[in-house]
Design a protein around this nucleic acid. Structure first.
Length: 559
RNA sequence: GCGCCCGUAGCUCAGCUGGAUAGAGCGCCGGACUACGAAUCCGUAGGCCGCAGGUUCGAAUCCUGCCGGGCGCACCA
């Protein structure tokens, strides 16, 4: 970060002084091959294209102007890259920056207070969360953490679909099971939830003292009353379960937004009127339609059905209207990939609400999770498997391991979740690899303390800082360079809404640390060097801790 | 049929606002503990980046067309 920022400001000044513009696409990257220096820049090639000049010649012009003690050498290489070799003390200073920033190392003001809402999970309260919801949960929670750390004002929300047909079906399903267990002869409902938990809910309604208004007698009275009580009990109980499952998974939602409340407050009607006023909604065949063909959809979509019921789409538009009314600059929705057909429709709706779907709206589709056990596929929907639910998976693997796996793939690729592997506490499991790096450093610091060595705690003294100059081996510089990239990674993750970048970064940092550890003795080193290495290790531990925290994963001090 | 996503090492996947010789983990094989934690480290092998064109100084990355896999195409949510 310091390297990126330092060189960007240095170069942009030079380029502008030369009378050239600084292209947006200009990049400063650490090259994969060390022979190309610490940082490489492509600006000369970009300028050459527009200027119709030789890229190497442009690079040479820029190179001649670089004059700073932090740059040992600049080379023009290949088709016109500028390769920078930074001085050792530039990197060494990074340790001080990290220890000074502490828990806030890597944070930035990238978002400049932009208000962002992340809506995620939002599963219908018709049954317990399954493993697929877990992936969306981990992703949304992590995204919120990343965005907060990068200067966004974030609110997280769960949209509860507690109105409409699915809820009636839930009530009907419970009612049916209750009637069955009373030995009443009733026809099987057309479409109903068949899970075992429905029978449990029915049992609770029948056991009169558990549910207000419940009891066997309820089913002798008017059917509608019984259905209502079944439905209400089902929703309450299932939502309570969902909240508990998410809490156990360390996933937080700040707001639980009820669809029913939206309808009750007349917000859906208000949105209808607003759309109709602009001829974006119209009546036809006894239904109310949204003119989604205006926005590239194949056909217009129904908002209010012939029978007067609202469609899911209708309340969803109103919900998004409400989100923007509440002042969010960016609305992020995390959906299961099976809803992808819905994206363009919703983008159209967002546009109809007067927003820019490119700027203010972002849908992240998370692909389905393949649940495996020791390489064997576990059929989730059919079999009433032991690990079908999120709660079971978390109980079995722990929240940290499950979260790390979910966050270690980009969201639009399929994810194999192998229970055996996630349970394993070995190097096959990347979570422990990263956590171990942290625990190991903590252990060294403890050992040093026991040996009477003054360990870094808070800000290093100026004398400590001078010892940093002793960090000059290749392993030292590898570690220093990687630490410097952490804030860049955080920003990249925020910009592209891609938490997996952090997982990969942490894996690599842990790897470089472990390697460092085996070849560089710390406690037994000579006093000055020992101090310098303790400072370096503290900086690594701090960075690992911050990164894991952004993922919502613990950084244990021993394991 | 139309639309979206995905095809990169044996397996699981990074890299995709175009950048230099394509990366990692696991697995395989071979090494390292009387050394701050071996939940670790070091090394070897392993690739027409699905195929074919195009765009240009440069393509795994962008465009087009195919092939293969997944998922959608309701007055369900």
């Amino acid at each position: 970060m310091r390297a990126t920022r330092f060189l960007t400001s240095l170069l942009s000044k030079i380029v502008i002084d030369l009378g050239y513009p600084w292209p947006d696409r200009a990049q400063l990257d650490p090259p994969k091959d060390k022979q190309f220096g610490d940082m490489a820049c492509n600006v000369a090639m970009l300028l050459a294209k527009d200027l119709k000049k030789n890229p190497r010649q442009v690079a040479e012009e820029i190179r001649a102007k670089v004059d700073t003690p932090y740059v040992d050498k600049v080379e023009v290489a290949g088709p016109g890259f500028l390769n920078f070799f930074l001085s050792k003390d530039f990197w060494q200073k990074g340790v001080l920056d990290i220890l000074t920033a502490g828990d806030r190392y890597g944070d930035s003001d990238l978002g400049q207070g932009r208000k962002v809402m992340v809506e995620y999970v939002s599963a219908n309260p018709t049954g317990p969360l399954h493993i697929g919801h877990g992936r969306g949960a981990a992703l949304g929670d992590c995204l919120a953490r990343i965005l907060r750390r990068t200067g966004h004002e974030v609110s997280t929300e769960y949209y509860i679909n507690d109105a409409g047909r699915q809820m009636m079906l839930l009530g009907r399903s419970i009612w049916y099971r209750a009637m069955q267990s009373l030995g009443r002869d009733v026809a099987e409902p057309e479409d109903y939830y068949k899970g075992e938990y429905i029978k449990d809910l029915a049992g609770e309604v029948l056991a009169g003292d558990i549910v207000a208004g419940g009891g066997a007698a309820l089913f002798d009275g008017p059917e509608q009353a019984a259905l209502d009580i079944c439905q209400n009990h089902g929703v309450d109980k299932i939502m309570a379960g969902i909240k508990k499952d998410l809490a156990d998974f360390k996933v937080e939602h700040q707001v639980w937004f009820s669809e029913k409340s939206l309808v009750d407050q007349g917000l859906v009607e208000r949105t209808f009127q607003s759309l109709a006023a602009r001829d974006l909604a119209y009546e036809k065949d006894g239904a109310l339609w949204f003119r989604s063909t205006n926005y590239g959809d194949d056909k217009d979509r129904v908002l209010r059905k012939q029978n007067g019921d609202l469609t899911y789409f209708a309340s969803d538009i109103a919900y998004h209207d409400d989100k923007y009314q509440r002042g969010f600059d960016l609305v992020v929705d995390i959906w299961g990939a099976d809803h992808h057909g819905y994206v363009s429709r919703m983008q159209g709706a967002v546009k109809a609400l007067g927003q820019d779907p490119e700027e203010n709206f972002k849908v992240i589709l998370v692909q389905l999770v393949n649940l495996l056990e020791a390489g064997e596929q576990v059929a989730m929907s059919t079999r009433a498997g032991k690990f079908e639910t999120l709660a079971d998976v978390v109980a079995e693997t722990g929240a940290d391991a499950a979260r790390f796996i979910f966050l270690s793939r980009k969201s639009d690729s399929h994810l194999d979740f192998d229970l055996e592997l996630v349970k394993k506490k070995s190097m096959e499991n990347p979570v422990y690899y990263v956590q171990y790096a942290h625990a190991r450093i903590c252990s060294v610091l403890r050992k040093a303390q026991e040996a009477g060595v003054v360990t870094p705690d808070g800000l290093p003294s100026s004398q400590d800082v001078e010892t940093l100059a002793l960090l000059d081996t290749q392993e030292d510089l590898d570690l220093l360079g990687l630490l410097d990239q952490y804030p860049d990674t955080m920003e990249a993750a925020a910009k592209s809404l891609s938490p997996h970048l952090l997982s990969f970064y942490l894996r690599e940092l842990a790897q470089v640390l472990h390697r460092y550890y085996t070849v560089n003795p710390v406690i037994s080193a000579e006093a000055g060097l020992r101090q310098a290495r303790l400072l370096l290790l503290s900086a690594v531990a701090q960075t690992v801790k911050n990164g894991l925290d952004a993922l919502g994963v613990q950084a244990p001090e021993r394991m």
